[in-house]
């Protein structure tokens, strides 16, 4: 079942009198629970496509449809609510809140997504997820005392604790070494499959493509291949 559709999406940046067409009428759809990787050379437009799909910047033309909602016609507040409740984000760096413990990072995300769970249920949920990612013993630790791999695992937990429908991951393994990158991808794959979360991921690391269901090759603002 299709959950996400991009229809003829274009993005043009204007720099003085020069207009640069970064995305040239991209159309694609994402199926529920599927992991899709966007690959391509630097400047091919993959990160721009991901951020437009995630509602972090508007498209110049075309439509972004998520679960029956047209993100391109919604107000920024409506898009923010969708981002908070239905989307999860993992970035190249963990970007954890430096003054919150691991448990509090996840608690904050549940609050932001307006979780209906009671405090007790939220704590239980957090404990379970931390247990799955092997970070239960570090739940009271601050980000400054975590290793790079641990930080990124917490970032993944923060991205999915509220059970989003779509996970957007922008180079999630770029700051990790090869071993940790594989562990991270395994974790993302296991969790998203278990929770039936659709994933759109930008990566330039070919080793990571073994963990995805579908690969979209981008070049010069267009999707060339659908592997």
């Amino acid at each position: 079942m299709t959950i996400f559709t991009l229809d003829e999406v274009e993005k043009t940046f204007t720099n003085g009198e020069i207009e640069e067409n970064i995305l040239k009428g991209i159309s694609l759809s994402l199926k529920e629970g599927e992991i899709t990787a966007l690959v391509g050379t630097s400047g091919s437009g993959k990160s721009t496509l991901l951020t437009i799909a995630a509602g972090l910047q508007p498209a110049s033309d075309g439509e972004v449809l998520f679960d029956g909602n047209n993100l391109t016609t919604m107000s920024s507040e409506q898009v923010r609510k969708i981002r908070a409740k239905e989307f999860g984000f993992v970035f190249q760096f963990a970007h954890l809140v430096p003054f919150l413990t691991v448990e509090e990072q996840l608690m904050l995300m549940l609050e932001v997504s307006e979780s209906t769970l009671s405090k007790r249920e939220q704590k239980k949920e957090i404990d379970q997820l931390l247990n799955v990612i092997g970070m239960e013993h570090r739940k009271n630790a601050y980000p400054s005392s975590l290793s790079g791999g641990e930080k990124q695992r917490v970032a993944v937990a923060r991205a999915i604790i509220h059970k989003p429908k779509v996970l957007f991951a922008d180079e999630p393994t770029a700051s990790l070494d090869s071993k940790r990158s594989k562990d991270m991808m395994e974790l993302i794959r296991d969790l998203t499959k278990k929770m039936n979360i659709t994933t759109l991921m930008v990566t330039h690391d070919e080793e990571m493509l073994t963990y995805v269901d579908r690969i979209l090759q981008m070049s010069d603002g267009m999707v060339l291949e659908n592997k």
Binding site: A54, R83, A84, F87, F89, H95, M109, S113
Partner: peptide, 13 residues
């Protein structure tokens, strides 16, 4: 600024 940007991205008002 970076932190606020991330928090805004994940949906904090």
């Amino acid at each position: 600024i970076g932190l606020y940007g991330i928090l805004k991205a994940v949906g904090i008002k």
